[in-house]
Measured scan of single mutants.
Amino acid sequence: HNLTITQGKLFFHYNPKLCLSEIHKMEEVSGTKGRQERNDIALKTNGDQASCENELLKFSYIRTSFDKILLRWEPYWPPDFRDLLGFMLFYKEAPYQNVTEFDGQDACGSNSWTVVDIDPPLRSNDPKSQNHPGWLMRGLKPWTQYAIFVKTLVTFSDERRTYGAKSDIIYVQTDATNPSVPLDPISVSNSSSQIILKWKPPSDPNGNITHYLVFWERQAEDSELFELDYCLKGLKLPSRTWSPPFESEDSQKHNQSEYEDSAGECCSCPKTDSQILKELEESSFRKTFEDYLHNVVFVPRKTSSGTGAEDPRPSRKRRSLGDVGNVTVAVPTVAAFPNTSSTSVPTSPEEHRPFEKVVNKESLVISGLRHFTGYRIELQACNQDTPEERCSVAAYVSARTMPEAKADDIVGPVTHEIFENNVVHLMWQEPKEPNGLIVLYEVSYRRYGDEELHLCVSRKHFALERGCRLRGLSPGNYSVRIRATSLAGNGSWTEPTYFYVTDYLDVPSNIA
């Protein structure tokens, strides 16, 4: 807008934040220059609390790290170098490059900038070799853009010569660093050979998330399962459950009422301010606690030095998902009996873990797994792929695949051998790939016309006998059925096997 004052003059007093240069501009645009008398524009009460600059400061050096910015700028000295009290560095987070010096300023003089007072450097006698002032900004957020400017702080001049310097606002972004852990990993099994893994992005990506790394490792069953005799009275049979499938998407929606109208769909109840505040506090606490764990609990591995020492970490090797089922080394339970199943799973520490690289999504279907087997899954978020990966501390989750139908069934015939004193040795093959492992066998036998009897055969007993022995049988026709019990439950009964026990007292003698 054009402003013209045809008559009258300007009068400025007691404006401590208004620089004289701005008042002189007002004289020019209003056409009143030359009308004012000496005392109409006070030299001592206008701009006496402001830094009124008329020179431009330029930054000469900028260096960044993930949490620091090192700045240096060209030296500046007023005509009387004693008038320079120091520099004021202003900075704040700036997602967009549209910041002005006066953003967030209120009537009390406060604003949204963080201000650092910096002492002037030592003055050199040689004007050509003056030290460049600077400042190291610490405690910054990774991968965050900051708006920065600097200006001088000078003393009051009796001659009211307006001098000083100020830089333009520059924008500097800190470097990326390792992201925080992925949030809320959930693993479920939808079949006997697959596990579905879902997660949420890290709360602090500290860069642009480029991919996720998912490692999985087959877990050995508890050692007590191999040692305890679950045929003993009072000892509860062990059981394991597989990871249940995901709930429906509708039930997972946030901010939804727990109660549904019987007449149909209901609208979600909005969260109160107290609920939102509580969630923010919980989120802040979780982030602080995660940072504490990362800094205190997890110790970084030592990389190899120039002395030739090897990095103890196993090298990563990509495998196809079809090879995942046989990740671990199978060892027989008892070496003397080769027909026992290889369900003991000690994992070799030198073995390469299978892994998958996930790009542009937060889910993965891990296939080719062994049925009813526990897996430990390790999830890392990465925001750099080359020249070397920059990934987060791992988040861990466990899951067990679903049982395989008929995996616990005894394959092959049940054979028998009759000894003296009416002892019958029953023999059968253990299931080759049971659900988890076989903890015991149930032997059901009966003599024709009598009630059915049951015998429990422990895992250890089966390994020693290759089956079991029935003792003290009365003469007669017998039928026997056997079924295995694994961590997933009972298998199917075998087809009945028949044998006849004679009275050993009636056996004919070869003595003449």
Rank of each mutant, 00 (worst) to 15 (best):
C456L: 02
S444G: 11
E260H: 15
G374L: 10
A394M: 10
V393Q: 02
K357A: 13
E495F: 15
C468K: 08
P245F: 14
S479M: 03
K460R: 08
V297P: 06
D408N: 14
V443Q: 00
T494G: 00
S344Q: 03
D450P: 01
L232N: 12
F289Q: 05
E281L: 09
E249K: 13
R319K: 12
T288Y: 15
N422L: 08
Y292S: 08
S248Q: 15
F298Q: 15
V296I: 06
G308A: 13
V424A: 05
E217K: 13
E351M: 13
I438D: 01
E260C: 07
G306V: 11
D291V: 08
A395S: 12
E281A: 11
R483F: 02
R240V: 12
E227T: 07
A335L: 14
N206Y: 04
Y448W: 03
I377T: 02
G325D: 15
E290P: 05
A381I: 01
A463I: 10
S398N: 05
S243G: 11
I377W: 06
E442K: 12
A407L: 09
V393R: 15
L232V: 13
L237T: 06
A220S: 12
S243E: 04
N477W: 04
S262D: 14
P403R: 07
F298D: 05
V359K: 12
I410Q: 04
R481N: 06
R370M: 13
C231Q: 02
V507Y: 05
E282I: 13
A407Y: 06
N477M: 05
D506S: 13
Y441G: 00
R218A: 07
N339L: 10
T288E: 14
F285E: 15
K271G: 07
L426M: 14
L237C: 14
D503V: 13
D503K: 15
P238Y: 07
S248I: 12
N208L: 07
S274Y: 13
L369F: 03
V358A: 10
T347A: 12
P244K: 11
W242M: 04
K361V: 05
M427P: 01
S444Y: 14
R286C: 11
L505R: 05
R471K: 11
Y212A: 10
D503S: 13
R319P: 11
S257P: 13
P431T: 06
E404K: 10
P205K: 00
K460C: 06
G449H: 01
E356P: 07
N490K: 04
V414S: 01
T272W: 05
E417Y: 02
Y445L: 14
G325V: 12
R316H: 07
S304I: 07
K236T: 05
S342W: 03
H371M: 01
V334P: 11
Y230Q: 12
E290H: 15
N326H: 12
L440C: 14
P300N: 04
Q252W: 10
R318L: 13
F372D: 03
F355Y: 09
R466G: 15
